[in-house]
Structure formats: C-alpha cells, structure tokens
C-alpha cells in the first residue's frame, strides 16, 4: 500500500472510537437547530462552515431564546478561543508543510482530531535530516483523523435534521440541548475553579436577564471567567 494512504488510514482507524461520542452531539445539534427555527440547509451548512460542536449547540440554544446576532457572535467567539491553544501546540509540527496543507489541517483542527493527532506527533520522532530514511508522513495521519471526524459530524447533523423533522413539537425534544449542557457542566464542575466560573455565570445570567438582545448572557459569561481565574489564583496561593 502507498505509505501516505496507510498513514491516512491509521489516522482514520485511531479516530474511529471517538465517533461514538461525537454522533449523538451531531444529531442533537440537528434536532435543536430545526426546533430553533433554523432551515435545514443552513443548519447543515453551519456544520461545514463553523465545524465546532459546542459552539453550534450554543448558537442553536441562543437562537431559540431569541438572542441577537451580537451576543451569539461574541459567545461563539469566546467558546472557540480554545482552538488557538491547539493551533499553537500543532504549529511546530506543521511548519514545514506547504500552505495548502496548513490551510486544510487548520480547518480540520477540532477538539477530537487534535486529541488523537497530537499523540502521534508526540509518540513518533520526525525522521532525521532531509532525505534521510523515510519522509515525515504524519500530516497524512492528522488528515485521516480530521477527515473521519468531519464526515461523522456532517452525517450525524443530517441524521439529526431528518429525525428532528419527524418528531412532533409537543415532545419538547429541544430540551435535550440544555440537558447536554447540564451533563457537560457537571463533568466540568468536578474542579473547584470550574465551580466558581459556573456559579457566578449562572447567577449573573439571572441578574442581568433584562439586558436587551440577551447581552446579559455575554456579560454573565465574562463575569464567570473572571471568577474562575480568580478562584484558581486564590487556590494556588492557599496551596503555597
């Protein structure tokens, strides 16, 4: 087999088990998007253009709550900020690649693709010197990871859209989106700093509920961030 293709397939294979966790989120997003009044083609397009699960669920939830474009944009912009951390971590491994490769792999840089691909980069050293031994093909592995996740995300979005269209409105199926947030929140709150951020953000969201366009949500998230950072710093000082 072509070694590039073998590397690509290895990436697909190692990414595959994570798809079980990704599929329900894609379906939920599709179901929630329809319930929020998003036309199906726009919901599917967003899965290709935005390609970030948590942000897409948040966009849907905020649209359903009647939020304006500015608060939705700001919240999604904040939520996706973490991709810059992945970008900096990947940069040294991708620096030698031509621009078209870097553009493609940047587009495919999601939580789950990063998590699998970075392990490959850390586990196998790059080939020594130019022309020595075998060439560095690990970007094909990364492409396999990214492509697998991309395909799952598009297909599960489509499945959610198909399923959502057949569910009667009285079933409150859109409530599954905040339930997802509760599940993720509970996992994140096992850390003390996460607790402070979540508690302050929740209380502030209620206190600032009267602000127009749901801008209170953005303010609440920012207050939660400061509380989280402050709690972390406090915990570190106490630990000293």
């Amino acid at each position: 087999m072509n070694p590039k293709f073998a590397e690509f397939l290895a990436g697909c294979r190692d990414e595959a088990p994570l798809q079980l966790g990704v599929m329900p989120f894609g379906m939920l997003y599709g179901i929630g998007a329809l319930a929020a009044g998003l036309p199906a083609w726009i919901a599917q397009l967003a899965s290709a253009v935005v390609f970030a699960g948590a942000a897409q669920l948040v966009i849907v939830q905020m649209l359903a709550a009647g939020a304006g474009a500015l608060p939705i944009g700001l919240t999604a912009g904040l939520l996706n900020l973490r991709h810059m951390l992945y970008s900096v971590s990947m940069a040294e491994h991708l620096r030698h690649l031509p621009r078209r490769w870097r553009l493609l792999l940047a587009y495919l840089l999601t939580d789950e693709a990063y998590a699998v691909a970075i392990l490959r980069y850390r586990a196998t050293p790059p080939p020594e010197g130019a022309g020595a031994g075998s060439p560095d093909l690990r970007h094909w592995y990364f492409l396999g990871c990214g492509f697998t996740l991309w395909l799952t995300w598009q297909l599960s979005t489509a499945a959610g859209l198909l399923f959502g269209a057949s569910v009667p409105a009285g079933w409150d199926i859109d409530f599954a989106v905040p339930l997802t947030f509760i599940a993720l929140l509970t996992l994140l709150m096992r850390e003390r700093a996460g607790q402070a951020a979540a508690l302050v953000a929740a209380l502030a969201a209620l206190a600032l509920a009267t602000l127009p366009y749901k801008l209170g949500l953005v303010a609440a998230i920012l207050l939660g961030l400061f509380a989280g950072v402050w709690a972390t710093r406090l915990g570190r000082e106490r630990g000293r």
């Binding site: 905040p178 994140l188 998230i221």
Partner: peptide, 13 residues
Amino acid sequence: HIAPASFAALTAS
C-alpha cells in the same frame, strides 16, 4: 473556564 461559564449561563437562562 470558558466552557463551564457558557454552559452555566445558558442553562440558568
């Protein structure tokens, strides 16, 4: 902290 803060604010709301 961005994820817990965002999810908590949205859920409370």
